[in-house]
């Protein structure tokens, strides 16, 4: 500011307004959720390059082809990577300490070419370990029907 005008600490303003959204998931994801409801893991498959997408995608990113084939995947998969989370992001966008650390894993389901990010139960994890999917058709929110993974052994 110019001479004679002291702003001091720059003032702030806020508003308690949170714009809401409702995203249609599309038919591919809808079919995926239908499958989970029946305890099945449904993935979409590219008819061109045979790439298998889980979660399913309508279009193969590599071939630009519609993935109109569906495959049911086995319950087993492999941990591609993981992190032990000591915090989570709270509603206000800051880290909050978790009471108990939890494992977030990237799991490649057997037969799939993409990964799912999910909680891994059991405390310990390693890259390459075999895991089994945990499906909860009764989950409160359908997005959590794929509840997570547990060690295969």
């Amino acid at each position: 500011m110019g001479p004679g005008i002291e702003v001091g600490q720059v003032p702030r303003a806020a508003l308690p307004i949170n714009p809401a959204f409702q995203w249609s998931v599309g038919n591919w994801m809808d079919h995926f959720y239908d499958g989970l409801k029946e305890g099945k893991l449904l993935a979409s498959k590219c008819p061109g390059c045979a790439r298998v997408y889980l979660p399913p995608r309508m279009i193969c990113e590599r071939c630009f082809t519609k993935c109109e084939e569906w495959v049911e995947l086995p319950e087993t998969g492999t941990v591609e990577s993981y992190t032990v989370a000591h915090v989570k992001v709270g509603a206000n966008g800051e880290f909050e300490e978790l009471p108990q650390p939890e494992v977030i894993a990237l799991v490649k389901q057997d037969g799939a070419d993409t990964c799912v990010a999910a909680r891994l139960q059991g405390g310990s994890a390693s890259v390459g370990m075999k895991v089994k999917v945990v499906i909860d058709p009764e989950a409160e929110s359908f997005v959590n029907m794929l509840a997570g993974y547990r060690p295969a052994e």
């Binding site: 307004i17 949170n18 959204f21 599309g26 509603a91």
Partner: peptide, 20 residues
């Protein structure tokens, strides 16, 4: 198809204004 919900929690934004 199914819909999922979410928001932009702008209540946690706090803007700065010299003009104030």
């Amino acid at each position: 198809t199914r819909s999922v919900e979410g928001s932009w929690p702008m209540e946690h934004w706090s803007w700065k204004f010299e003009s104030i």
